[in-house]
């Protein structure tokens, strides 16, 4: 049983030169922010380290942080420029019974995060869902396809982005009723 602070120290000492941050001001759970291009290494470390043993990935969620510049379009809709998209990892150790939340934020224009699907197989479908819904690209994922939306859904159209607009037509069918 370890606290988030201790795990944070472990990561920090294990990966010198990698930006990690701890935000403990959240009301319910502290979050460790990590570099999106080092996620795989850190996760592997967290899984295999004797003091951490995070053997299960409870949840992986893609989130549009919507913290960029909001630009009004002519038709009164908004698009967001800049800012980040984040991936939240909720890890849990069944043997040591402690939990931790990681966050990897990638720039909105080129959201690339390393895939962790060979650390925990559970990440496979979750990452596909995050890709499908938020457009986060997981590097080294073996089979990054859309999962919930149709395979031929318009490229670059990701429903869970805050500035998502319904396409007018899908395969010749009118989309908004």
């Amino acid at each position: 049983m370890k606290k988030a602070e201790e795990i944070f120290e472990l990561i920090k000492s294990g990966f010198p030169g990698v930006t990690v941050e701890l935000s403990a001001d959240m009301p319910t759970e502290p979050i460790i922010s990590v570099d999106p291009l080092k996620v795989h290494e850190i996760c592997k470390f967290l899984r295999d380290n004797e003091d951490c043993k995070f053997d299960s990935l409870m949840n992986l969620s893609g989130v549009d942080d919507a913290n960029g510049e909001k630009i009004k379009e002519e038709d009164d809709s908004e698009i967001i420029k800049g800012g980040t998209l984040s991936v939240y990892y909720h890890l849990h150790s069944m043997s040591l019974n402690h939990k931790i939340t990681l966050r990897a934020s990638a720039p909105r224009e080129n959201p690339e995060v390393e895939s962790v699907d060979n650390v925990w197989k559970a990440a496979d479908w979750h990452e596909r869902e995050a890709y499908d819904m938020c457009g986060i690209k997981f590097l080294n994922h073996y089979d990054l396809r859309r999962i919930l939306m149709p395979y031929d859904w318009e490229d670059g159209s990701y429903p869970l982005r805050k500035d998502y607009k319904n396409p007018e037509f899908y395969n010749g069918m009118k989309v908004p009723y």
């Binding site: 009301p27 759970e29 979050i31 409870m58 949840n59 969620s61 939240y88 909720h90 939340t101």
Partner: peptide, 22 residues
Amino acid sequence: PPVGTVYQRVENPKGELGYFII
């Protein structure tokens, strides 16, 4: 609710049902 995140999981009949709310 105040600003923050929560991940709450319960033992649904089929397994772990988790809600991650920001």
